[in-house]
Design a protein around this nucleic acid. Structure first.
Lengths: 186, 186
DNA sequence: TTAAGTAACGGACAATTGTCCGTTTAGTCA
DNA sequence: TGACTAAACGGACAATTGTCCGTTACTTAA
């Protein structure tokens, strides 16, 4: 019976899942929990932890991949229910509020075009942005020729905003600025 | 004879300068040189190194502060020699190319509004952007009401671009997008 | 069912970061 | 000039990250 549903051996998958579960709780409680402590709590050795997640970032990325997936999927949902430009706006608002992104986890996708395991997650986001841009262009709601990579880079700024009073309005201003750059027709 | 020109004791200043000199060379050669190695090369103990520069970031920030200062100063120079909008554009171009910012050093000013020693450097940049915006507004070259913090956050993206073929054109596109958002009158 | 092959394990170890604290010395004042 | 004091030093130590490699056990195939 070929069991390799995802190319991972059964015990490896079990370990991976257990590490993620433990890490999610631990990192939520304290973002700087030592990786070694997480490994111990998950009942695996250092080697196992690091083989699965070479860096702290990789671990965090895995934890929040679900939420990122949901965000990427949201794009098409919004496009079905709203006019393109409004869908785009709603998506950006959701991006700015996406709780998983806040604080330390924010740095995740920076320079994501380089390292390999980030790449996959990054691509999902680019695709989402590309679909939103394409729909808006088709509807004549923005200027043509915008580059999804560029726009995503700029939107990434929203994840870096420190959470201070006024953060929400700053998000709104920045989104407005970007839409202005895209030539959005209000 | 009161010698404290900058609130630092003479020997402390000498150490600080020596560390910076060594670190500049070492980090240019290999951005991941261990801090302990830098300390040893500068002939100071771990304690001294960490007292002066609590983190790797702090050290890098100090190294590149000169270059950042120059960038901030460039704004007024450009404003004297060029029409406001062109000055702004030239400044952004310089920002994108500022060699010190590339690679690992790029992350420096992210979330700069939080930690204290970053704050000062960050303020200089905000002031520069604010002066450029004000001049452009006064000349009617951009829409009024732009927020310097917002614009600087967006410009910060330029420091995060991985150096790949096409980086320069991506910089140009992003700058154009931002200027579009500002309502720049071409 | 068993044996072989290999992916995965996990703890020991190396490297680096970051802290602490007793010692030294620059700067001050009589 | 000779203490005095506080700033600064720097090495030892603790904590964390990251690597290595001999051992274990999941899978497959006969």
């Amino acid at each position: 019976m070929a069991v390799e549903e995802d190319g991972l051996r059964a015990d490896a998958r079990a370990n991976r899942d257990r590490i993620l579960e433990v890490a999610r709780k631990a990192l939520t409680h304290d973002p700087e929990t030592p990786l070694s402590a997480i490994g111990k709590a998950a009942g695996v050795g250092q080697g196992t932890l690091y083989r699965h997640f070479p860096t702290r970032e990789a671990l965090a990325l895995a934890i929040y991949r679900e939420e990122i997936n949901a965000l990427a999927a949201l794009a098409s949902t919004l496009l079905q229910k709203h006019p393109p430009l409004e869908a785009f706006r709603l998506w950006c608002a959701q991006l700015a509020n996406s709780s998983a992104m806040k604080r330390g986890v924010a740095k995740l996708l920076q320079g994501a075009t380089s390292e390999d395991d980030k790449r996959e997650t990054y691509e999902q986001m680019v695709l989402a942005v590309r679909s939103l841009i394409a729909a808006c262009e088709a509807a004549g709601a923005i200027d043509t020729g915008a580059n999804a990579d560029d726009v995503l880079m700029l939107l990434g700024v929203l994840w870096q905003l420190p959470s201070h009073p006024g953060r929400d309005s700053q998000s709104a201003r920045i989104i407005a600025l970007i839409f202005g750059g895209l030539g959005a027709k209000d």
